[in-house]
Structures are given as C-alpha cells and as structure tokens.
Write a protein that binds this DNA or RNA. Structure first.
Lengths: 113, 113
DNA sequence: CTACAATACATAAGAAACTAATGTATGTTT
DNA sequence: AAACATACATTAGTTTCTTATGTATTGTAG
C-alpha cells in the first residue's frame, strides 16, 4: 500500500532535513531511494516535489551544496548548515508533537450514542 | 504553540470524518471549537478551509446535511453516510499507519559519521 | 550491439488545498 | 452601543504538489 500523496503534504521538508541530519550528506536521487527503502516503498518522493524543495532549503540557507563527478555524471550533495541543524530539531519536534496531538483525535471516542 | 498550517494540510478531511464518526452529528462551527478544545488550541481549523471541505464531503456522498434553526440562526448539521463510515475507517487507519512510518524516519539514526 | 532500465539532474503547466480577507446576519455580554 | 461570539459562506492569491517532459550518462539484458 502506497500512502496517498495528500498525507505527504507538509512533511516533505521535515523528512528531507531529518535525513540530512542523520546522513550528514546526501544527493537528491539518493534521498528518493532512501525514503523508498526505509518505508518499504510506501512513501515515494517524486523528483518534481523533491528538487524544488531542495532548492528552497538552499535559498533559505538551511543547506549548502557540493558537486561530485562520477565519470561525466554529476551529483549534487546537500549538507546542513548550523542554521539548518537547529531548524531540523525544531521541525522534527513539531512534527512529533503534531502526530501525538493527531492521535488524540484519531484514538479517542468523544461520545458514544 | 500553534502547529504550523502546513502540517494540517492533508489531514483535515480525515480529522473531520473522525469527529463525525465519534459525535454522530456536528455543525461547522462546532467542529472548529471541538478541535481547538481537544488540542488545547494547538490546531485551529479556519473557516476558509473547513467549509469547502465539508461541501466536498457532501458532494462525494460521505455526509448528509440537516438544517436546524436556533431562533433565526441556522445550523447545518453533518452526519456520516454508510459510505462515509467505511471511508472514515480507511482514512483513519491510513493516517495512523502513515504516522508510524514517519516515526521510523524521525526517530532512527540511519548512520553515524 | 542495441534497446531498455537505472542513475541524476532540472523545469514547467496545471491542479489541489490551503490562507487571509471579506461578507452577511444574529445573539450575547459589558 | 460597542464589542465579542456564533454561524454560515465565498473569493483572490499563494503554496505546494502532480504529471509530464527534457537532457544526459551508465549499466544490463536479449
């Protein structure tokens, strides 16, 4: 089962930041594969969503880039800046807290009729 | 702390369906207040987001409406249809599973360097 | 040895879903 | 009487995604 894309909305930036925090340095294609791998193919990040997000993170000063050449093929590595690291902690904590709050709504029976 | 609105994206429909499942019958304004109440003001659903969502649920046959008059003021109550009830279970289960998957990404240390 | 799949970047048109603002109206509190 | 709360609704604009397309290199299967 693949998660409906609407669920991924709003969590993509946080996911990418957290992956960069855990892996120090990643390139775009690697991020798509890693997410597929660790979610058992249930979350698939499309390139059309990922690249604009990475560019936005760079424009915001949360990541810096570094080019690597594998033969003639280029890889653009992304790495968190200090600002990016603290922003990552913020965003991760917020998402975890949000999910706890959502669970209150999803789990409880408010009234029984 | 109020959750950034981007996090609410994609979960609104599921929240509304679940609230209707637990409360049998609710009107729009009541939904906004209930969500504020049970989340300690951390999730605030705006009317501009809620009403179009309710109308979409009705157009999709997941809810039916019923008008109530309190003096001259009108309340539009929403109630799940049988289709709406089974859709609610699906969406709630999917969101819970999604959150478990997200926790894998947010909690684990993939590599240490 | 060539066609297809995979790797790797990127953009762009359109859609979806929201925000923020505005509008209308009634009821309640200070 | 003014302000706030209740209760519906719409709309212009923005953000963020999907789907498709484009370019190019490298690996693999027939």
């Amino acid at each position: 089962m693949i998660f409906s894309s609407e669920l991924i909305k709003g969590t993509l930036k946080t996911m990418v930041l957290k992956l960069l925090a855990d892996n120090k340095k990643m390139y775009g294609y690697e991020i798509t594969q890693k997410v597929k791998e660790i979610t058992g193919d249930r979350i698939q990040i499309t390139e059309g969503a990922l690249y604009p997000t990475l560019h936005a993170l760079e424009a915001d000063g949360l990541v810096i880039t570094e080019l690597e050449y594998i033969g003639k093929r280029v890889r653009k590595h992304y790495k968190l800046t200090p600002t990016g690291k603290s922003k990552t902690k913020e965003k991760v904590n917020e998402l975890l807290a949000f999910m706890d709050t959502m669970k209150i709504i999803l789990d409880i029976k408010l009234q029984t009729a």
